[in-house]
């Protein structure tokens, strides 16, 4: 199991690094899909069946299709993709800030201690999470559907040529 974790983790980090470094947004989108699918594998290793399915269907499926579709719709040519030359000072400082912050987060996470917990039989199953979602989390669930409705209406309004 450990070897699987390291493979998935390496692929996720590789996908992320490729995404932030590749010039072409389309290549970046495909690298992000690699990252998201490896994360789906990690969710499966954490017994999160429901989140795993959602990750593959919604994230690697729907959201990435939306992004790739938009990239292809914009149909950017060479000049529009042209980025200003790499600002080395900004690159170094941004990388430094992120590295220090990541180091700090890793130090803090190093102190987290996981208790040994026995899993229930339906842990992470669609039925278990579904029950929880429609009982304890009923109000947030309704609010999130409202948020999605507002997003849909907003997108339609934004995409109209004349408002």
């Amino acid at each position: 199991m450990a070897i699987l974790f390291y493979i998935f983790a390496a692929l996720a980090v590789l996908g992320g690094l490729l995404m932030v470094s590749l010039r072409n947004p389309l290549s970046g989108a495909f690298s992000l899909i690699l990252s998201l699918v490896s994360l789906a594998g990690l969710f499966a290793m954490l017994n999160a069946e429901f989140v795993f399915i959602l990750q593959v269907l919604v994230y690697a499926g729907a959201i990435m299709v939306l992004i790739i579709f938009t990239i292809m719709l914009l149909n950017l040519n060479k000049e529009e993709l042209e980025e200003p030359p790499v600002a080395w000072m900004r690159l170094i400082f941004t990388a430094l800030v992120c590295a220090v912050a990541a180091f700090g987060a890793i130090r803090i996470f190093g102190h987290v201690e996981a208790p040994k917990i026995e899993m229930t039989a339906d842990f992470g199953s669609i039925e278990g999470v579904g029950r929880l979602m429609l009982s304890d989390f009923l109000y947030p669930f309704e609010v999130i559907s409202l948020v999605l409705l507002v997003a849909v209406v907003g997108v339609v309004l934004l995409a109209k040529k004349v408002i």
Partner: peptide
């Protein structure tokens, strides 16, 4: 802890992308 380390690394790779890249799609 391993999962949390990976999560932190991925989060700050993403943060780097937001801060450094100038392409809105990326």
């Amino acid at each position: 802890n391993h999962y949390l380390y990976l999560s932190a690394i991925l989060f700050f790779i993403g943060a780097f992308g937001v801060l450094f890249r100038r392409n809105l799609l990326v």
